[in-house]
Each structure stands twice: as structure tokens, then as C-alpha cells.
């Protein structure tokens, strides 16, 4: 392979990596909020799926990608409100409700998809987020293909990382958020409204999750298929843990896990002897190793998973 060939393979690999990492990164960034507040939402898979469908359906009906993104965010917020209501106000088990969200997402999107688009038909053409052409930058050799041929949604997602990092670690709101996840009773004593913080965190995380799903169906691809998230919500959960509950860590984890995916595509396409399934296993094994302390200790917020009951 010549050097220029290698460079072009590598640059398109980075491009694919970034695209596969984005849905995971968006959902995981949102989960930094909810996990930090003490909410464990394993239903993010279902939320992503509903976001993916909502994006395509809204774009089909409204004819605008940006408007449908707004609809996706609203739906995500409603789902987050519903989730937090069930686990905080109704004090239901977070894991159980998370599972129910996954089932609900799968059931509703499959049904609505058939109702709206019919069965076995070609996917409708929708307005989606297409790669932007940035003058000069996009035309640069290597760097252009790798970093500057992405959709606007990708750049927005990247901007969110430092923003979320700033909010969680440098502001009062972030301090309150972390206090609620570590020691809700103490937070309550100093006058933080624990329930309110959890509602906001739950809603924000589901908004991110829904947008992550919509990225999948409107930027990485431009159609919806049944169960298209295929476990990405769980990878996002792994990315939060592997990324030690920080947005920068999440970015690294998502790019790493995305690279794993991109590698397994390459392997499948090239008919190589390396088993792609074992590569797909890597994110989960790494996360298990992190949980066991082999790859840097991963310790989550102390008050995870329990509803706060005021005395």
C-alpha cells in the first residue's frame, strides 16, 4: 500500500470513527448529568431509539432537519420528565423502569414506523444533516476528510463537551448536581432542592439521549429502521463509566468504542480472518476491567439508584 493510500484509508477511518462515536458520545454526555445526580437510566437505549424515530418522522412531516431536531429535544425532555416522575415521585425502581423504557421504545417506534411509512417500502427521503463544506478546511488533504467533512450536528456535539464540563465542574449548579448524587440528605440540609435537581438532570440526559438517537438516523444515516440503535444506549452507559463520569472522559471513551466499531466494519468488509465479534466485545470487557480497577478505578456517585425520600 502506498503512503497516499494509507493516508486516505486512515483519514476516512477517522471520519467513520467520529460518526460512529457521536450517538454514543451524545447519549453518554447527557448521562453524565443524570448519573451525577444519582439517577441510573438503563432505559437510555429506548430513549435513543425514540429520538431516532422522532427525528425521521418529524423531518418527514415538517420538511426541516432543524425543526425536527427541536421536536426531538422536546420529546426527549418529555421522556426524561416521565422517567424522573416514575423513579422519584412514584419511587419505582430505576433499573426496572429503565428496562420498561427500552421495551416501550422498541414497541412504540416499531408500531409508529409501520403506521407512518408502511411495511417493506423503501425508506422515505427526508431532510437530514449532511456534511458541511467548510471553505479551505474541508479541502485540506488528510485533515479535511478526517475532521472537516462532518454535519453541523457533529460540531455542535463537540462544542457541548467543554460546555458540559464547565457546567458540571465549575459552576454552582454543577456543584449542587454533584452534591445531590453523592449525599442527597446533606444537599437537602444546605437548601438544595434535591428532587428539582434530579428532575432537571433526568430531563437533560434524555434530551441528549434523544438527540444521540437522532444523530444516528439523521446524520450518520438518513432513514429509520426497527431497533436501529442496537445496543448503543448500553455502550453509552459503558462510556460514562469508562469515562469516569466526566465529559472529557466520555469523549475519549466514545471515540475509543467508536473506533472499535469502525475496526469491526473494516474487518467485515475486508473478509479478514480476525473475528469482528471479538472486537465488538472490547468496550464491555474494558468497562468491566475499569469497574474492577484494572484500568484505573471507576467509582460512581454514592447515592446512585435510590429515590430521595425527605424525612
Amino acid at each position: 500500500m502506498s503512503l497516499s493510500n494509507l493516508a486516505s484509508t486512515l483519514s476516512s477511518f477517522i471520519n467513520t470513527d467520529i460518526q460512529t462515536a457521536m450517538p454514543i458520545m451524545l447519549a453518554a454526555t447527557g448521562m453524565v448529568f443524570s448519573e451525577r445526580a444519582g439517577l441510573v437510566n438503563i432505559g437510555i437505549e429506548g430513549v435513543m431509539l425514540m429520538g431516532a424515530f422522532t427525528g425521521v418522522a418529524a423531518s418527514f412531516l415538517l420538511g426541516s432537519a432543524w425543526l425536527s431536531l427541536l421536536v426531538v429535544i422536546i420529546i426527549g425532555g418529555i421522556l426524561g420528565l416521565f422517567f424522573t416522575f416514575l423513579v422519584e415521585t412514584a419511587r419505582a425502581d430505576q433499573v426496572v423502569i429503565g428496562m420498561a423504557f427500552n421495551l416501550l421504545g422498541l414497541g412504540l417506534t416499531t408500531m409508529l414506523n409501520r403506521a407512518l411509512f408502511g411495511m417493506n417500502t423503501a425508506p422515505p427521503k427526508i431532510e437530514s444533516f449532511t456534511p458541511l463544506h467548510i471553505p479551505v478546511l474541508s479541502d485540506l488533504p488528510f485533515i479535511g476528510t478526517a475532521f472537516f467533512q462532518h454535519s453541523s450536528l457533529t460540531y455542535i456535539a463537540f462544542v457541548l463537551i467543554p460546555l458540559v464540563g464547565f457546567i458540571v465542574f465549575k459552576t454552582n449548579a454543577g456543584l449542587n448536581l454533584r452534591a445531590v448524587g453523592e449525599h442527597p440528605r446533606a444537599a437537602d440540609t444546605v437548601g438544595i432542592n434535591v428532587i428539582k435537581v434530579r428532575y432537571i438532570a433526568g430531563m437533560v440526559s434524555c434530551m441528549f439521549g434523544a438527540v444521540g438517537g437522532a444523530y444516528l438516523s439523521m446524520s450518520q444515516l438518513n432513514f429509520f429502521t426497527e431497533n436501529m440503535t442496537a445496543g448503543r444506549g448500553f455502550i453509552a452507559l459503558a462510556a460514562v463509566i469508562f469515562g469516569k463520569w466526566s465529559p472529557w472522559g466520555v469523549l475519549g471513551a466514545a471515540l475509543l468504542f467508536g473506533a472499535g466499531n469502525a475496526v469491526s466494519y473494516l474487518i467485515q468488509a475486508s473478509n479478514s480472518q480476525i473475528p469482528g465479534q471479538l472486537v465488538l466485545m472490547v468496550p464491555y470487557v474494558l468497562t468491566l476491567a475499569a469497574l474492577a480497577g484494572f484500568v484505573g478505578r471507576a467509582v460512581g456517585p454514592a447515592a446512585s439508584g435510590k429515590p430521595y425520600i425527605k424525612e
Binding site: 423504557f101 421495551l103 412504540l108 409501520r114
Partner: peptide, 14 residues
């Protein structure tokens, strides 16, 4: 669609 049973199951759990 068969998928309705997922919805019913999810609602029962909730």
C-alpha cells in the same frame, strides 16, 4: 403489529 405486546409489557412494568 406484534410490537404492541412490547408496549403492553412496558406499561405493565411501569
Amino acid at each position: 403489529p406484534l410490537a404492541i405486546i412490547y408496549v403492553i409489557q412496558a406499561l405493565v412494568i411501569m
